[in-house]
Nucleic acid binder design. Structure first.
Length: 871
RNA sequence: GGGGAUGUAGCUCAGUUGGCUAGAGCGCUACGCUGGCAGCGUAGAGGUCGUGGGUUCGAGCCCCAUCUUCUCCA
């Protein structure tokens, strides 16, 4: 059975059991702050388990792309070494939201595996939760009894809390689970060791394929459990492993999910999979990672140096590193795998096909930049090796190379061992740990339990129509972070506050109680479909009815920038071409930022055209045409574009200004004329193939013009109202440069004169050409004279004094080098001693030193005293 | 979000505890050498030492702020 058929069969099976089939959610999770990527099939449905939203149907099935780079069984650094762990994998799942429970879940799982997929019953094992004293939970006998109908008791194993109790996180829904494992070893192997001893023991051929989670508890912040009002089913089956079993191969990488990619890697790198262990690992690493990186870019998550983007960069770099070391690829090559990947997986995941060009460009550029980093690191490492006195390189040095210059530690130790050096691994790990602690301490937050004031399932958003509303607080909790200190999160029964989303920042405003006391709302965010209002303190009368008021200024400017963003998007597609797609957007009161795919710098002419395009539509006074709750299909037919990496419900909201149509949940102006004016302030690159435009509207544009105009008039004013200020400044600059040169020349001449005069005043005392005198020159000229004389005469001992203004004096001492060395003179000491006489101090080297002070009256005395050094 | 590094001539970079008149290589200009080319020689131009403050007799170097680029961690 081909992998594509396996996927289709699974979905059809559950469709026949009345499940709604939904497409995979995007990899990057946007409304869950605890998660960077979707890491399990249930993640996109979290809001339903938490009771913050209602699913379209209470039975759903899907295949979900998941990304895991850390966790108990999956460390990024382990992927590639075995044959069954991946960073990106598909999870087939069926879900019940308060509908069927253990009985159906178990029976259907068994039916699908043994009757539809025809897996031999004798190679299957199941596990059930054995109970936990710590949580005061009994064994899951319900599941045990159900399994007994299908499978002999000796193949039903009891598992501990670690393996058979599933939790979403430290807090939240959880419950016992039951896993199905499969033993695909040969007969001989099975005879040697009983399969049940290998279950849950990291054996590559005795693996878990399906986990059935019975969600029935809620874990509170203090660790205690309470029963959930509705029980749910959450199952997840590893697609790649299922393919391995059904295709009768011993490794996920031998299934047709991966073999086409492996063949392509063999061609590109001129190697053969299955010949050399190290090369095999490298090939698996590349094969796995290219999928992750490509899917992620397709969903709009580009490699970057922070957050989720950094995870993607690390994965890509890991693959490049393996190619570099074990397959001898010293130039970009991974981007060439994009074609085969989009051909093979583009059917199930069309985003790969549509975004192919972008994926290729981004990967190629990332590879090239990492290879540059490697090259630089190699040079630095050479430097460290050649300057090292011992054959052991310290952990600190290696860590610096890694931390500051991005040179991978495994390459460092490889190169060191090739050259007969060793690395202080322990020291390195210590440094790494120190850094981790620093980062963790800086971002630590603690979250308390929700305190529920009233039961109210849904928090209605009324902000499209109202800026004020009478609200009640339904629940609240306290969060503490190192950065922001103590904050409170409030949830209302209804709210006019727009939560951060769709690129637009959250609303701010205040709550007013019956006594007129105010509590300011500093931000609004959405978390698992819940609108959360942030305050610095708690209202004193929590059960009051509050007047909730959104800052209208904040709102007006955000709306203006948001609507302008839509017009900008339209302008870009119209002027640069339809290859332009939104890749990111930030809308705040002060400005807007828009990232989009485009492969060249936007020229000044194009920028002007774009500005004009947008401003024409502002002047056109286009009214807002808003449609709420229309079917996605209809919105698309109206001309709206769905974005990759964005999750859409069945019904959407569409925002139309003239010919600009977008799916958008944000706040907009009622008429484009409210935007007043649109002005681009910058254009630049953010990644390969991605450009960024920053622009302003409304008040900001007014301020911009007022500021620039007043600056310009000030400049003109200073230039005596010059007609052409630019030219006037250029003239001034030229003149200034000329004058500087002239002054330099004059000073030189003056110095030459002075030095001529001075030469005649040299006095020979004890074989020393001595002179101590007051000169009327600046510090630099004195220096020039001293060194000039130094080239002409030997055995010089010069002391110059000068004063500027009434309260500044300076003493300079020059002694010919040979003289200073032979006779032990020290100019530094001379000036610091003479400096006291002018109420100051100074120093320098033994042949040249300066001192400054604030008593010019002491100069004659100092000059007098200078003689004492040579007598 | 938290660290580290980086910015000096058109380019690639040196520049020691703050002080020996801001340097090297390549490139550029002029002149010269060589039969031509490759090349060589001589001379020269080219610098707000990222930016803005501060400390100091004196700052490329130290302190504070800010920007660029790179990089690690969360």
């Amino acid at each position: 059975m081909k992998s594509q058929d396996i996927r289709a069969t699974f979905l059809r099976f559950f469709e026949e059991k009345s499940h709604l089939i939904v497409p995979s959610a995007p990899l990057v999770s946007k409304d869950d702050p605890t998660l960077m990527f979707v890491n399990s099939g249930m993640a996109p449905f979290k809001e339903y388990f938490l009771g913050n939203g209602i699913p379209k149907k209470n039975r759903i099935a899907d295949t979900q792309k998941c990304l895991r780079v850390s966790g108990k069984h999956n460390d990024l650094e382990e992927v590639g070494y075995d044959t069954y762990h991946h960073t990106l994998f598909e999870m087939l799942g069926n879900w019940s939201f308060g509908d069927y429970f253990k009985k159906e879940a178990i029976a259907w799982a068994w039916e699908l595996l043994t009757e539809v997929f025809k897996i031999d019953k004798d190679i299957l094992y199941v596990t059930v939760f054995e109970g936990s004293e710590e949580d005061n939970l009994p064994m899951d006998t319900e599941a045990y009894e159900l399994w007994k109908q299908f499978i002999p008791e000796n193949r039903i194993l009891k598992g501990s809390k670690k393996d058979n109790f599933w939790e979403m996180g430290d807090q939240g829904p959880c419950g016992p689970c039951s896993e199905i494992h499969v033993d695909i070893r040969s007969k001989e192997e099975k005879a040697k060791i009983d399969g049940k001893d290998l279950v849950n023991n990291d054996h590559p051929q005795v693996v878990e394929i399906w986990n059935l989670v019975f969600m029935q508890f809620n874990r509170k912040a203090d660790g205690s459990l309470e029963n959930l009002p509705n029980k749910h089913i959450d199952t997840g089956m590893g697609f790649e492993r299922l393919c391995m079993v059904l295709q009768g191969v011993q490794s996920n990488y031998d299934t047709d999910v991966f073999t086409p990619i492996i063949r392509e890697i063999e061609t590109i790198t001129d190697t053969k999979y299955g010949v050399n262990t190290k090369q095999d690992i490298a090939i698996r690493v590349i094969c796995d990672h290219i999928r992750t990186v490509a899917f992620s870019i397709a969903d709009g998550q580009l490699p970057s140096n922070t957050g989720a983007g950094y995870v993607i960069r690390r994965i890509l770099r890991r693959a490049v590193r393996y190619g570099f070391t074990f397959l001898d690829k010293k130039e970009p090559f991974m981007y060439r795998l994009t074609t085969v990947l989009s051909e093979k997986m583009g059917v199930a995941f069309p985003e790969l096909k549509d975004q192919k060009q972008l994926i290729e460009n981004v990967i190629k550029e990332e590879e090239a930049s990492f290879l540059r980093t490697l090259e630089q690191g190699l040079l630095l490492l050479d430097g460290i090796i050649s300057s090292s006195k011992s054959t052991q390189i310290s952990g600190e040095k290696a860590f610096e190379l890694y931390d500051t210059f991005g040179f991978p530690i495994d390459l460092t130790s490889l190169i060191l061992s090739e050259k007969g050096f060793t690395l202080d691994e322990k020291g390195f790990q210590e440094e790494l740990q120190k850094q981790k602690n620093r980062s963790r301490a800086a971002s630590e937050t603690s979250t308390e339990d929700w305190i529920v004031l009233r039961e109210d399932a849904f928090e209605e958003f009324v902000g499209y129509d109202y800026l004020e509303a009478e609200v009640k607080i339904t629940k609240y909790r306290k969060i503490t972070s190192k950065k922001d200190g103590e904050l409170y999160q409030l949830v209302f029964n209804l709210t006019p506050f727009y939560p951060e989303g769709g690129g637009q920042v959250g609303d701010t405003g205040f709550l007013k109680d019956h006594q007129g006391d105010l509590v300011y709302i500093i931000d609004t965010k959405k978390e698992n479909n819940l609108i959360i209002h942030y305050t610095k303190n708690l209202p004193s009368h929590l059960n009051d009815i509050f007047q909730a008021v959104v800052s209208s200024e904040h709102r007006k400017l955000s709306a203006s920038n948001h609507s302008a963003t839509h017009l900008l998007h339209q302008a870009l597609r119209s002027i640069l071409g339809t290859h332009v797609e939104q890749k990111g957007s930030l809308v705040k009161p002060a400005s807007l930022r828009f990232d989009f795919s485009h492969f060249a710098k936007v020229t000044a002419d194009e920028l002007r055209d774009i500005e004009n395009f947008v401003n024409a539509r502002i002047e056109g006074k286009l009214p807002l045409e808003e449609k709420r709750n229309i079917p996605l299909k209809q919105a698309i037919e109206d001309g709206a574009m769905a974005l990759f990496g964005e999750k859409y419900g069945d019904t959407v909201r569409s925002i139309k200004f003239g010919k600009s149509v977008e799916l958008c949940g944000g706040i907009h102006v009622k008429n484009t004329s409210d935007i007043w004016h649109f002005k681009i302030v910058s254009e630049g690159a953010v990644a390969a193939g991605i450009r960024r435009i920053e622009a302003i509207t409304n008040e900001a544009v007014k301020n911009f013009y007022v500021d620039t105009h007043s600056t310009l008039s000030e400049i003109k004013n200073v230039l005596n109202n010059a007609q052409e200020p630019v030219k006037a400044v250029q003239n001034l600059q030229e003149e200034n440069a000329d004058l500087k040169k002239q002054i330099e020349q004059l000073l030189k001449e003056k110095a030459a004169n002075v030095s001529q005069t001075i030469q005649n005043q040299l006095q020979e005392i004890n074989g020393v050409q001595f002179l101590a005198t007051k000169v009327d020159l600046d510090a630099n000229s004195i220096k020039n004279i001293a060194f000039g004389l130094g080239q002409k005469h030997e055995n010089l001992f010069l002391v110059f004094a000068t004063s500027t203004g009434n309260d500044k004096a300076m003493i300079t001492c020059y002694i010919s080098k040979e003289l200073a060395n032979e006779r032990g003179f020290d100019a530094g000491k001379v000036v610091s001693e003479l400096g006291k006489l002018i109420h100051g101090g100074g120093g320098g080297q033994n042949f040249f030193a300066t001192a400054g002070g604030k008593n010019p009256g002491g100069i004659p005395k100092a000059l007098e005293k200078a003689k004492e050094y040579v007598i």
